[in-house]
């Protein structure tokens, strides 16, 4: 399930807004609330446990530094946190080595409950949009995006696992992400309802 520890008091107010106001306990609240989520992302995009731990520290520091730039009217706080985390991890990977494959610390894909993507609509609005839009993708695109974005696997790993040519994996992933983005933007414009 979504790894955001949200106590009732914390859910009322943005944690990042508290960090931006330099409230004494806000950083610990931030760690409590987003620690598991950021750890989950870091594990999937890091070649080792130590690397994942270093990445988590970097991500939190960046998050605290950029807390004042979060605007709740533009995105959910969880989305903002995820964007910062993913960008930091991808940059780390690119700088460390552009030729070394990233192996996830742990592959729990096979252990996932077999849930329909529409079974998880309840949490945040933006994830709900993504859920509906993911359902509009062809199965291959959805699988490739899951392995790339959620599991942090390289295209060559995905190519090998799914026995699809590398070029096709890249093409499916990019086209899938473009379709998702366009679908989610149509949702945003429409306000409610299902994007076509």
């Amino acid at each position: 399930m979504l790894q955001v520890d949200e106590s009732p008091s914390q859910s009322i107010q943005s944690i990042l807004a508290q960090v931006a106001r330099r409230e004494p306990q806000s950083l610990n609240h931030c760690i409590e609330r987003y620690g598991n989520l950021i750890w989950s992302i870091a594990k999937r995009y890091s070649p080792s446990q130590a690397d994942a731990e270093d990445a988590v520290q970097e991500i939190f520091l960046e998050l605290w530094q950029k807390a004042d730039r979060f605007n709740p009217s533009l995105s959910a706080e969880t989305t903002f946190v995820t964007m910062i985390a993913r960008r930091r991890l991808i940059d780390r990977f690119r700088k460390q080595s552009r030729s070394v494959e990233v192996n996830s610390v742990e592959n729990d894909f096979d252990e996932q409950p077999n849930l329909s993507s529409t079974a998880s609509v309840e949490l945040i609005d933006e994830a709900a949009k993504a859920t509906r839009c993911l359902d509009g993708l062809v199965a291959n695109q959805r699988d490739i995006l899951r392995k790339s974005i959620q599991e942090g696997k390289s295209h060559s790993q995905i190519s090998s696992e799914l026995e699809i040519p590398l070029g096709s994996v890249k093409s499916f992933a990019r086209r899938g992400l473009i379709q998702l983005r366009q679908c989610m933007e149509r949702f945003s414009v429409a306000g409610t309802g299902v994007a076509s």
Partner: peptide, 9 residues
Amino acid sequence: EASACTFLT
């Protein structure tokens, strides 16, 4: 942003 929402989903 789309990638982040997809990850969360």
